[in-house]
Write a protein that binds this DNA or RNA. Structure first.
Lengths: 176, 176
DNA sequence: ACCTGAACACCGTTCAAGT
DNA sequence: ACCTGAACACCGTTCAAGT
């Protein structure tokens, strides 16, 4: 609070005229962050809407890695934070998903995206350097054998592959 | 630190004999938490290994919701935290995934699981009560229409559905 | 209405000193 | 080797008082 106030050229106590507590202020930051996602409207292609939602959220994480952490364990319910959710759900419904399946699809996409973005911000950190190579070889032969792949930069590819996996699963489900 | 020390019947400064800082202590808690997952060994059924990994991690979140938050933004690399990862990767390799595809599959599963568990701990909070019903109806018609489904308790079903989606996507990919 | 001084009850951490 | 007293430089927050 003191730092924020300092940035505004004011004393810490002044902030309490405008927010109830530090936690409420951080809630506001998180909502503001989600509000940065530019609305895409309802897409006629549900898979494209999934890709758009996911890459928008990941973009937030890359632009504001510190603040993104706040989204990790907060349930947002402000108007600005809900627009992207509305658009995605509407696209899924328009794409032929039943209400129950649209919600399930949304949750799967949101969970993957949130988890991936947080992992990326934290650093995946399974490269060979971060462990004693000896115990690694003995106890974790597979991790050792795959260390080259695990160490590769968390890149666009690995993220895209994940959402395509989910989209592929959703397509299969939709056809049944 | 003062609270932890109190729990141990000791003064706060004593802890610094054993840990470098509060952050290091929290790293230790996170690693201990992951270490609570009982090893399942290498499964001959990769899909079953995916289900086991995912439900183990989610079980952690439900048993220790507060501590689980620590996993949200930490990259773990301790031996105890790596055993479940080793087992899953080994099962995927044994199941016929190439090194690159096994790593991609692991990342997708881990990201979804982490994201879902964190959302569940935070509370999904998209029920009708958490928003002014008026603005909801006007600006977010789809959320409003789906509010009954969105409000439903984050249950076993919604989680299972998500991993089955990923497993289904992985199966399709594996066959290509 | 908005800001501030002074104060309260805390933090994590260091360091010299104790046993 | 392990613990502690005292102290430092901080926190978030309240409240009466200022303009």
């Amino acid at each position: 609070m003191r730092a924020v106030a300092g940035e505004l050229g004011v004393e810490a106590m002044s902030l309490y005229r405008h927010v109830d507590s530090k936690e409420a202020l951080l809630d506001g930051v998180a909502e503001q962050l989600m509000g940065e996602i530019e609305p895409r409207g309802v897409s006629s292609d549900w898979a494209e809407a999934v890709r758009g939602f996911a890459s928008s959220v990941r973009g937030l994480a890359r632009e504001h890695p510190q603040a993104f952490t706040l989204l990790g364990m907060r349930a947002l319910a402000s108007a600005s934070a809900l627009q992207p959710v509305e658009d995605l759900l509407a696209s899924l419904r328009a794409g032929g998903f039943t209400p129950a399946r649209a919600v399930a699809a949304y949750r799967a996409v949101a969970a993957f995206t949130r988890g991936y973005a947080l992992s990326e911000v934290a650093g995946f950190a399974l490269d060979e350097g971060s462990l004693g190579a000896d115990t690694l070889g003995d106890r974790f032969p597979t991790i050792r054998a795959l260390s080259r792949h695990l160490a590769s930069e968390p890149n666009q590819g690995s993220f895209r592959a994940g959402i395509e996996l989910i989209i592929s699963g959703l397509s299969a489900e939709r056809e049944r």
